[in-house]
Nucleic acid binder design. Structure first.
Length: 340
DNA sequence: TATGCGTGGAC
DNA sequence: TGTCCAAGCAT
């Protein structure tokens, strides 16, 4: 049973963020990067295109510098890992921390969340943003309760079948919670690979087949070490190889980073998609939902009308919330968070 | 494959 | 101040 006792976050107390890795496997991988010069001492699958191993210094760095995050503690369990992954989708760690703690204290198991109305999940989500994630997490908890006996599945395909879980999150939960060997390709890892291996400042806008192939090729053969590498490469991107103001002087692989060795050429090609916000439906939806979240009962339409002056856009945004299941229309022009 | 989907901190 | 950015997913 996946029943992690609530993990009060009392600050750094558990330096060992993950089980110690086993000895490095000596099994040669067949997925060598083509054209790579032979480097006999290192299994082919663990070398970069230049033949230089990448994971050893990164994992060593991680052993020293990993943040003590609550979802990395053993007591977090698979449910804690999964909750954190939902919350961390497009939201910074610092904003996730307090909500995560409250969430796990209130709903320590998937079944506890599944027993609540979805609107309660939306309310507890607070201002993390993208509240459809709260709905999907609630739906995932319900599916876990129904289909998996209340335990977060360990199987990648079963994880992928849950609402709100895509390729990244399925790999992350399987790797971080269950120690499995998966390519965990998030925006941090993609940026590290783009720089260290490809020599580009930023990865492509959308994940490419070449990136997936590279991620698989760089995966250590040993299962526990692969899971460690996944967390370590993400952490490197989050703390050192950041999008802006990268800290190459603190980077364990700076001496072999293709981008740095090339003189850190600026990004060329199409501009990276920027996100506008002011004046969009998103902003209106956010305001509307904030009112519903903070209300304790049904809210009259007249109150919702206060949040935005333009009636057409306002109506479209409200309709969108209803269509997404984030708001529930009642009789007499009243709205509330969804009970079902 | 491109687009829509929240929020707030950093510079 | 405005722009960019933060552990993606669904359609």
């Amino acid at each position: 049973m996946t029943a992690p006792t609530k993990p009060p976050y009392n600050g750094p107390s558990d330096p060992a963020a993950a089980p110690a890795s086993a000895a490095v496997s000596g099994t040669p991988a067949s997925a060598a990067v083509s054209g790579a010069p032979a480097s006999a001492a290192v299994p082919a699958g663990e070398r970069t295109a230049s033949g230089v191993p990448l994971h050893a210094p990164v994992i060593d760095w991680f052993d020293e510098h990993a943040r003590d995050l609550p979802w990395r503690r053993p007591e977090a369990g698979a449910w804690g890992v999964m909750v954190s992954e939902f919350m961390l989708q497009q939201t910074p760690v610092s904003r996730v921390l307090p909500v995560y703690e409250q969430w796990l204290a209130r709903w320590p198991r998937p079944a506890d969340l599944a027993a609540q109305a979805p609107g309660e999940a939306v309310r507890a989500w607070g201002r993390l943003g993208y509240p459809r994630r709260a709905l999907r997490l609630h739906g995932a908890a319900a599916a876990i309760t129904e289909r998996h006996g209340g335990d977060v599945p360990a199987d990648h395909a079963q994880l992928l079948a849950l609402p709100g879980i895509g390729e990244y999150t399925a790999a992350a939960v399987a790797s971080f919670a269950y120690g499995q060997r998966h390519a965990v390709l998030d925006t941090n890892v993609r940026r590290v690979f783009a720089r260290a291996v490809t020599g580009a400042q930023y990865p492509p806008n959308a994940t490419t087949a070449a990136e997936r192939k590279l991620a698989r090729a760089l995966l250590p053969d040993d299962e526990a070490r692969a899971a460690r590498w996944a967390a370590a490469s993400m952490e490197l991107g989050a703390l050192v190889c950041t999008a802006k103001n990268e800290s190459c002087h603190r980077c364990p692989i700076a001496d072999r980073c293709a981008w740095r060795l090339a003189g850190k050429p600026a990004h060329d090609g199409p501009p990276r998609r920027g996100q506008t916000y002011a004046g969009t439906d998103r902003q209106v939806r956010g305001r509307l939902l904030a009112v519903l979240r903070e209300a304790h009962g049904p809210v009259p339409q007249a109150v919702l009308d206060q949040v935005w002056h333009e009636p057409v856009q306002r109506a479209r945004a409200l309709d969108g919330l209803v269509a997404d299941g984030l708001a529930e229309p009642l009789a007499d022009g009243l709205y509330r968070l969804p009970l079902t």
